[in-house]
Amino acid sequence: MPDILVTIKDGIGVVTLNRAEMFNAVKLSMWRELADIFSNLAHDDAIRAIVLTGAGANFCVGADVTEFKVIRENREQSTAYEVSVDACSAAIANVPKPVISAISGYCLGGGCHLALACDFRFADTTAMLGIPSAKLSIVYGVKSVQRLLAIVGIANAKRMLYSAERYSAGHAWGMGLVDEVSDDAVGAAMDFAGKLAQNAPLSIAGAKFMLNGLSLGEGALDVTAAQRLIDRAADSDDFREGRRAFSERRAPQFRGR
């Protein structure tokens, strides 16, 4: 069985971590494969939104620590490993489409890393989220710390990283780490993805690019690139379709161009 499954339903791509027997722990090869998968989905015009989830009862327990004695034994190996991890999170964050993580059970360490790179985090009542790096003498990567800070604020980010505690879905929702809690995280994520998929792709791509850049602090946003996205939408067929649909009081049919 493949470690990662990709399916498409009604314009929504579903990426599933598929190591249920290992609580969906992510191997180095999987970090690299995920980067390729999300990069490909980014360029697939048939995909309007993406849901990231895990097989079985858990989203992702984190990186596969059993590999570390071979692939992360020293500083050089750790640096190379983090390059692959950051490339994965960048590929997820940079997809110009909504990405929603659907979280059940464990979402720890590297699992949180994946969830933080998504636009939204939907959890069910079994979810337990945390970053146990302080129990492994690992310093969480810069990009993930930036995303954590932007999402939960400095006090909660410090508490999570210093304490290595696990948080229930309700507690995580109160911190802002989780956006919605329901009995069925995947179902809720798919419903939300379906709603977003009906909106203008160029509008979402532009908003996502700007919000991601602005959230990471001064100088992170490429203003020139942001203006290109604004101009592209202003010149698009979708903009004209949106105006027509508004005046005709009907649902617009957007095509991403």
Results as ranks from 00 to 15, higher is better:
Tyr167Leu: 07
Tyr167Trp: 03
Ser168Met: 05
Ala169Glu: 01
His171Cys: 05
Ala172Glu: 01
Trp173Ser: 09
Gly174Gln: 08
Met175Asp: 02
Leu177Gly: 00
Leu177Glu: 00
Val178His: 01
Val178Gly: 00
Val178Phe: 00
Asp179Ile: 03
Asp179Val: 02
Val181Pro: 02
Val181Trp: 01
Val181Leu: 01
Val181Met: 03
Ser182Ala: 10
Asp183Asn: 11
Asp184Ser: 12
Ala185Leu: 02
Ala185Asn: 02
Val186Met: 13
Gly187Glu: 05
Ala188Asp: 05
Ala188Lys: 07
Ala189Phe: 03
Met190Glu: 03
Phe192Ile: 07
Phe192Gly: 00
Ala193Phe: 02
Ala193Met: 07
Lys195Ser: 03
Lys195Ala: 04
Leu196Phe: 11
Ala197Cys: 13
Gln198Asp: 06
Ala200Glu: 15
Ala200Asn: 15
Pro201Asp: 06
Leu202Glu: 02
Ser203Tyr: 08
Ala205Gly: 08
Gly206Ala: 10
Ala207Trp: 08
Lys208Ser: 07
Lys208Leu: 05
Phe209Thr: 06
Met210Ala: 14
Met210Gly: 11
Asn212Ser: 14
Gly217Met: 03
Glu218Pro: 13
Glu218Cys: 12
Glu218His: 13
Glu218Leu: 10
Ala220Trp: 10
Ala220Ser: 13
Leu221Asn: 02
Asp222Met: 05
Asp222Ser: 13
Thr224Cys: 06
Ala226Asn: 06
Arg228Ile: 07
Asp231Thr: 15
Asp231His: 07
Ala233Thr: 10
Ala234Asp: 12
Asp235Gly: 13
Ser236Leu: 01
Glu241Leu: 07
Gly242Trp: 05
Arg243Val: 07
Arg243His: 12
Arg243Leu: 09
Arg243Asp: 06
Arg244Ser: 11
Glu248Ala: 15
Arg250Tyr: 12
Ala251Val: 10
